[in-house]
Design a protein around this nucleic acid. Structure first.
Length: 259
DNA sequence: ATGGTAGACCTTCTA
């Protein structure tokens, strides 16, 4: 079973690009972020045609996440618990049904820039809420995949130019520490477990020729419970997608799990 | 060099 995560930066602006990739790769499950539309504006039919079941947690203009799965989705839950006043659409969780059911969440973690503002405080609060929720999910002792745009650069090796990110919310000690704490709960970073090679970037800014110069960062992650990590056979970052026409600034990351 | 690009949108915010 292959599970993908991809921040598409507007599903409607990107539909042709995204559908083409789905036709080529045909992942079993996909977590999409930054769909940038309300539920009703999500182009569900384009994916249903390809055999996918669709769950959407959308929002006007900003954020928005979706889950696509060839197998039916059960126990769909929208929104990260822990703050009833949070109206951003950044979390969608469901169980992919089948002989070996697997719980999957699509995550779009707050960017948090600039540091020293309420935006950065919101990011850290969100990380803390994710920590609490992940702890509860891990207690179920089930196969679990928390996949998405974490907006966290875990280590210096995950950036082309770490010094250039020193003042950025994605590389603050608090952000990195919260990401480590999440892993210490018992979650495995699929890319590091399967490969770990430096330079496995997943995002290149649109500006200043970042792609051309390979000024990338690794911020799109799949975190696996022990029951999912036991089944991990590999991770592929679809880097070439960044060089196509009308690209997202992020590329798909795909984890393969044994049936 | 205080820039650069992209998307949704009421002319600015978010990334």
């Amino acid at each position: 079973m292959r599970i993908a995560t991809w921040n598409v930066n507007s599903i409607n602006a990107r539909l042709e690009t995204v559908v083409r990739w789905f036709e080529e790769e045909s992942p079993d499950v996909a977590c999409l972020q930054e769909i940038k539309c309300v539920d009703a504006a999500f182009p569900a039919a384009a994916f249903e045609r390809l055999g996918y079941n669709v769950a959407v947690h959308g929002q006007k203009t900003y954020n928005g996440v979706a889950l696509l799965s060839k197998a039916p989705l059960e126990d769909v839950r929208a929104g990260l618990p822990g703050d009833d006043g949070d109206d951003h659409a950044r979390y969608l969780e469901a169980v992919v049904s089948g002989p070996a059911p697997i719980r999957v969440a699509a995550i779009y973690l707050p960017n948090g820039n600039p540091i020293g503002t309420d935006k950065f405080a919101y990011k850290l609060k969100w990380l803390d809420r994710l920590h609490n929720h992940a702890r509860e999910l891990l207690a179920l002792e089930e196969p679990l995949v928390l996949a998405g745009d974490y907006n966290v650069i875990p280590e210096p090796a995950d950036a082309d130019n770490p010094a250039g990110w020193a003042g950025d919310a994605l590389f603050q000690p608090e952000s990195r520490g919260a990401f480590r704490a999440l892993k210490w709960l018992g979650l495995t970073d699929a890319y590091m477990a399967a490969d770990g090679a430096p330079g496995g970037y997943t995002f290149w800014d649109y500006q200043a020729g970042a792609w051309r110069r390979d000024h990338g960062i690794r911020i799109d992650h799949l975190l696996l419970s022990p029951q999912a990590a036991d089944r991990l056979t590999g991770v592929v970052i679809h880097r070439d997608v960044r060089g196509r026409d009308k690209p997202s600034d992020h590329v798909p990351v795909v984890a393969e799990l044994r049936p």
